[in-house]
Amino acid sequence: MSAPQAPLRAAAFVRVESLLLPDLALRAPWHAALNAPGVGGRAGRVAALTAGLPLLGALQRVDRRTARRLAAYACRGLGGDRLAVLWRERYADLLSSPLRPLGEEVVARARAGGHRLVLVSTAPEVALAPLAERLGADALLGARFELRDGVATGRLEEPLAPGRVEACADALGVSLAGSYAYGVDTHDLPLLRCVGFPCAVRPDVRLRRAAERAGWPMLWETAS
């Protein structure tokens, strides 16, 4: 007779941007463009981002995911080493400052419930590793720049690409059906759909519509 299997634990998948920290989806590529090596490379990237700023600003309200992917295209041609350093630089100040109260409350609740904590971010994992350490997170699902010969192609490998959430849950020994997820934009839809307790936090327009259709709870930060 086999030994009874220990019940699977639950996890809280918490989106970093907008919930714990401000969203730097546009500011980080801007930092990368300003710090590209060489005069030509720098000027070209800054000009392209400046020209696209109105479009990116509008998109940020409606569909943050597309805005992020477009902005990341400014990093095309930069080396993977430089991108890691620039993203770390951009996040360094942010990571040492206090977290957003709503996010802190979500993390505290997860901890109180004995849940495993998984941070989900559209920023590269290397930039957020210090935050994961600070919060004692059990795992970090971050974005990765697609690199060819060590150089960014301008495309992002999504942290919620098919199979990554399931693999993470397997590695941590948690049940997705009993887990919680806190998403902020359409990027998080695959995650919200596969957990038992999804929640939209300060959602963009498209996620709000999806949450309303699915009947997911929504959280809004109120000015204190």
């Binding site: 090596p37 080396g79 080493d81 430089r82 350093v85 010969d149 060590g150 150089v151």
Partner: peptide
């Protein structure tokens, strides 16, 4: 270690 990376790592 390609030269592009040598220059980049030196900068960094």
């Amino acid at each position: 270690l390609p030269m592009r990376r040598v220059v980049e790592l030196t900068n960094l």
